[in-house]
Design a protein around this nucleic acid. Sequence first.
DNA 1: TTGTAGGCGTTATCAC
DNA 2: GTGATAACGCCTACAA
Lengths: 318, 318
Amino acid sequence: MISSLELARLCGVSQGTVDRALHNRSGISARTREKVLRAAEEHGYRPHPGALEILGKTSSTVACVIPSINGVFFMDLLETIRAGIRGLGRRFVIVPVADGAEMLEALRDFSARRCPVAVVVPPEDDMPLPADVTRHTRVVSLLSPCRGESTRFVSPDEERTGRDAVRYLASMGHRCILHLTYSRRAHAIAARERGYTQAMEERGLRPVTRVEKKVSCLAELVAREKATALFCHNDWLALTAVRKLAAAGLRVPEDVSVLGVDNSPTFVSLYPDLTTLEYPGEWIRDQVVRVVTGKEPLKRKPGFRLVQRATVAKRGGG
Amino acid sequence: MISSLELARLCGVSQGTVDRALHNRSGISARTREKVLRAAEEHGYRPHPGALEILGKTSSTVACVIPSINGVFFMDLLETIRAGIRGLGRRFVIVPVADGAEMLEALRDFSARRCPVAVVVPPEDDMPLPADVTRHTRVVSLLSPCRGESTRFVSPDEERTGRDAVRYLASMGHRCILHLTYSRRAHAIAARERGYTQAMEERGLRPVTRVEKKVSCLAELVAREKATALFCHNDWLALTAVRKLAAAGLRVPEDVSVLGVDNSPTFVSLYPDLTTLEYPGEWIRDQVVRVVTGKEPLKRKPGFRLVQRATVAKRGGG
DNA sequence: TTGTAGGCGTTATCAC
DNA sequence: GTGATAACGCCTACAA
């Protein structure tokens, strides 16, 4: 790693002249510029990233800090975001962290480096972000909002998703629809639950929500509630449910219909039969890209596209 | 983000004194140290990472550069490595890249920052690493070796894995064993293939290897070759195979036995029935940790533990 | 057209 | 026990 000073000595010019050549600045003869540029090329000169950071030049890397318990959905979502960031010519790095403290530590580091934007998936809602983090970097949070100056929460309309799920399953003739979800305190979870409950009550149906932990006795629950359909918070949970039901001798979709959410590519190739509501990953990507390029976010929130496959059937077979 | 100079002015001392307090160095009175430390705490002082990098202090972050087409196996392997690195008190970042050029760019950046070690999963064997990359950072490559000064290739004995697979399946009475693998030029793939071929020939059996792309006609292939067992390069491929066979009306394991490789946690919860050889992720983690801490690598290479579940049966049912 | 000086935040070293 | 100074690599601004 040759420095700009060494490069200057090599060419027999001053550091300032090297800088002019490197940045296409005026006030330098074509001949000198050529000479410097050639030497730079030859020695593989690159400015030291740390030096640029010190000078307060905003770094060109976009950092993404996520809890390490990520799963295939995040993997695919991050890949979508990565492509978007890369399309901007910026670097993209992922920092997996074990808890909120580590997350803050990572964010502080990127902030100190003057990363202009960091994407974050908080471990739970309303994690407070201290001023020294948000001072120089705009934090974009996914799935859960954060507390703190100039933080942007990017989320599709999760409540509507809950309603859409009920509407679809009801349109297939189901009246006893169970909601399977998680206990973690997160906007995506709470909002979808609200939407589900609302839509059920509008139809005079009784909402029944159960949390992941209690899924061990799923078949018994289904029998007791006479449920004909399951709305699962994501595809992973849906697959777990399908397996539990199969083990208890219940057929999907003949006995019970199962609807998931996400439709992430990896999951689809792993289990191509699942009927599901597709998470709008491209919209998330676009919103992140807009923040990075300083544009205003799109106001309109997209819905979750229904992908009909083999795990939801009309009630009573068909 | 307060600087050490500002901190010094605040406390009415010099920058040098602040430094002494911050680093528990001698030549400072207890009272002054206390004062500085308190102020540092209060203002949330943290040294600027870029400044440290400039001074040639080796950075405390371990970078991992991987092709973005990673899949669940890598996800789980990286999580294992992450925990190991974190146990050392170091930071861990992942950079997903689209191709070799991007990979080099990322490595150059970390090298310029004086990251002492970078873990890398090359897109194919023998990718050349220029001197400006390897000068300051030791590159540990997984799955495929790299060309370049002071590069360390960390890999279990893949050849033995191929032999172990054949030995196991042969012990179950299988004589016509197909090998399903990938066409990518990678050590892990080639070595396992060598082991498989060797072990087959030793037993007087005919090795038949097919590449992923041609799996569309898998059932026909199995019928034509009268194969009773499939050895798949990884669990993902194994699952694909199982599905293809099922679609053609072949039962697993009654008609055909299927053996995978990896046993990564996420995959297991997705498809818990697969009999597989477990990739020694903890050993990889330990080797990486040894490189980071400057210890000599363990010479003994571990085998792949056999995890017997439901997809391999004795030939002729059982 | 070119060279020089100063500053960014930190650490190391020498002087007092 | 403390302060001043130089150094790292880079950029900006000013001087020649």
